[in-house]
Nucleic acid binder design. Structure first.
Lengths: 115, 115
DNA sequence: GCATTATTTAACTACTTGATTAATTAACCG
DNA sequence: CGGTTAATTAATCAAGTAGTTAAATAATGC
């Protein structure tokens, strides 16, 4: 799987509120499938599938602990997405600066004596 | 559309390499549908649909200019995703720090005289 | 070994996505 | 006006996604 495929998988995995909620839960620490499923009004197999999607995208890893499958958050794909967004930061910064200058020009023209 | 739905739409829109390539193109400036389609080995209607997905996610806006439909990059959804990733930054920072400490401990135990 | 708990697999359904080609709409230009 | 260019809509198809219930697998613990 190349870099683009990894981004595809990570973005697709994050495009569902249940999966983002699962990650938010795991940000507080490792948890079992049942523990992760508990807040949802959704069958266990459905949650199990969401977890599989997160695992395939590398957003979590799993280890067996007795009868439990403990899920752990992996941050690398989120870091990759964060990096991806950075290539656009100069654009939003530039637009913000331009907006500031514009507002300042309006202010100055209002301050001109005789107007 | 609430905040979660907006993230859903943005993440889903970004989960396709053609759509990310279109955004990368628009980062260099506004462009028509045909100009955006040119690099792809894909029919024009297919590209048109990708553009529609980006528009619905708020990642671009369009304006008619004579016979052209000029597309412009909108950065807000990318900023939202960037913000979303920030809630996980302390985790990857903490793990990075822990890794550094671990390596340092190994180094120190190797430096101990008599070992 | 057997009941219990944890989780996955299977089979199915409804809906969405990504692509195609053909047809249509819209605006320009000579 | 009529031809050309730009772009979308329509119809269609294959594949993928999100959910369900029922059955299967796996490990625990009396």
């Amino acid at each position: 799987m190349n870099e683009s495929d990894q981004l595809d998988a990570a973005f697709a995995a994050l495009a569902h509120p249940a999966r983002r909620a699962i990650l938010a839960h795991l940000a507080r620490g490792t948890a079992s499938v049942n523990a992760l499923a508990e807040p949802f009004d959704m069958s266990l197999p459905a949650v199990s599938k969401h977890i599989r999607v997160l695992e395939n995208a590398g957003l979590i890893t799993r280890e067996r602990d007795a009868q439990f499958r403990l899920c752990t958050l992996e941050t690398k794909p989120i870091q990759n997405i964060s990096s991806w967004t950075e290539q656009y930061r100069h654009i939003w910064d530039a637009r913000f600066d331009a907006m500031g200058k514009l507002l300042n020009d309006i202010k100055e023209s209002n301050d001109e004596p005789g107007h």
